[in-house]
Design a protein around this nucleic acid. Structure first.
Lengths: 295, 295
DNA sequence: TTACATTGATAAGATTTTCTGATGATAAAC
DNA sequence: GTTTATCATCAGAAAATCTTATCAATGTAA
């Protein structure tokens, strides 16, 4: 019966991920010496070296690599015990870690949080904003409880629940406000500003225009929808916006908004979570609340 | 990230098994209040009741039942991490928990321990002596590292390695010392003294005599081979002994020893362990040492 | 080469956690 | 009604863990 602690495992995991004592300590919200000591304790308890400390870098030994995977599995199982206990109480309380794609988060989350704060004071929502593949990964690893993204996620281990549909609209410089709405083909000839690689909204827009990512075009990549709209307003090109972003992003920017004729391009935003999550019932409740807020 | 500790899990497991705060505390080598407090901490951290404390008994709530299984799985995984780290060092050191059946343990283990003590000072062998089904169970649960028992164990998840064969010999009162060796059939008409239900040696002896356990006979059950031999010496009946027990058990007892004609009844004693054990290499080394000692 | 910056280890003292032993409360058993 | 068994609570002691300050080693830039 070896004398290790979960605390050591958590620190170990952090150090394995960051490869840096200082940053790992930050991630664990402790001082660097405290982390150093616990890592040392762990290595002593196991009787082996887990990390190779070279002058400028810290990385796992082969054995450490192996153990890191197991430790992660254990931490997941422990957290699941917490979830399971929490799920015993059917009410919607406690902490939920929700991942949201960047083209949804800024427009949806504030409203959701506002709505929840009133009715569910014991609810503690932590939002992580990043692109779909990362969300799926962290969800599967058990580092997130749920994610809000464009459906379908098409992951066998995940449950999906649709929240709402949103159309895409065209954003042009005001100088072109009275020009006719371009066809898909017309759009392809314009200078289309899009989010950088990795964002699903980029792919959705390209797909609408029937553009292969393979054939590179003269497009500027922006890191946020806000940036794109600013660029449109100074006449650099045109862009698409999901409906939900419209109000916020065009409020102060001087641009023209045009809707496409039907069938309008659109996407379905939904919530996903691990099928195996003990919190399924709570997550479904949460999805319903978000759905109500979005409507 | 819920704030529970492995210590709490170990205490929880002990309490779940014993259903008694005092005994669980003993098992964990701490005082009863310490255990009470940690269980309370755990229940608080999880926000639920894990045990129902009625006046005269402590038992798991339905949720506790569920969590207990998971906690055991986690503890197993943690211990396996220890094993894995230890296995990194190919040498035969550290603690091994070995289960041995009662008809082998007293005759084999002292010799083995003596042999090991000299050559492997850093080896820490803990012996658990009980019947085969319990050994198999504890082995599978990860509460033992290996077991020494009569082959075949016939468990899909276990590796087997034969250690030695031993014949069975007949023990009779000295008054019958010059009587001819009875046939199997003759044996069936005698008053055969055997170990109580559960011991594999009992079944092996019955099997040799072609006696179904179904048809009950007038046999006295003893709890140790030593008891059986004592009973033979005062003329109550006859018994069989595995060869290895012969020297010890007939040293002081006044009984006659007779060997059966070939093919003599016999059994194969071997060592088994989980196929998945990280310590496989060490366990094989250990088996070889035991084999050498027994020879 | 020297000064400097970065990074992990170490040390000392403070804080927090955990444990023990004594005692209390409750309910069953005699 | 007293005794017994059992778990909870309390106070103080012991152990662990943490923080701040500092050191040592290594690489980088002047």
């Amino acid at each position: 019966m070896i004398n290790v602690t979960l605390k050591q495992f958590r620190y170990f995991d952090a150090l394995a991920r960051t490869g840096h004592f200082g940053r790992a300590a930050d991630a664990c919200a402790i001082s660097q010496p405290a982390l150093s000591m616990q890592i040392k304790e762990l290595e002593d308890a196991l009787g082996t070296q887990l990390f190779e400390r070279s002058a400028r870098s810290v990385h796992l030994t082969p054995l450490g690599e192996d153990l890191a995977a197991r430790v992660r599995e254990i931490l997941r199982a422990v957290d699941e015990i917490g979830d399971l206990a929490r799920a015993d109480d059917e009410r919607l309380v406690g902490r939920f870690r929700i991942g949201v794609i960047p083209t949804v988060a800024p427009y949806l989350i504030p409203r959701v949080m506002q709505g929840l704060a009133a009715d569910h004071p014991d609810l503690d929502i932590y939002i992580r904003e990043t692109v779909t593949p990362k969300l799926i990964g962290e969800l599967s690893e058990g580092r997130l409880d749920a994610a809000i993204l464009a459906l379908p996620a098409s992951e066998p281990g995940l449950s999906e629940e649709a929240l709402f549909d949103e159309d895409f609209v065209l954003i042009r410089p005001t100088t072109e406000a009275s020009a006719p709405v371009p066809s898909k083909e017309g759009l392809r000839t314009m200078r289309l500003l899009l989010l950088e690689e990795g964002h699903c909204f980029r792919d959705q827009a390209l797909s609408f225009c029937d553009i292969r990512t393979a054939q590179p075009r003269e497009m500027l990549d922006g890191s946020s929808l806000s940036t794109l709209v600013q660029m449109v307003s100074v006449g650099i090109g045109v862009t698409l916006l999901p409906e939900m972003a419209l109000a916020v992003e065009t409020r102060s920017a001087d641009v023209a908004v045009q809707r496409f004729p039907k069938p309008q391009p659109s996407r379905t935003i939904g919530m996903v979570w691990r099928k195996s999550s003990p919190l399924t019932s709570q997550l479904r409740q949460l999805a319903d609340l978000v759905k109500a807020t979005a409507a």
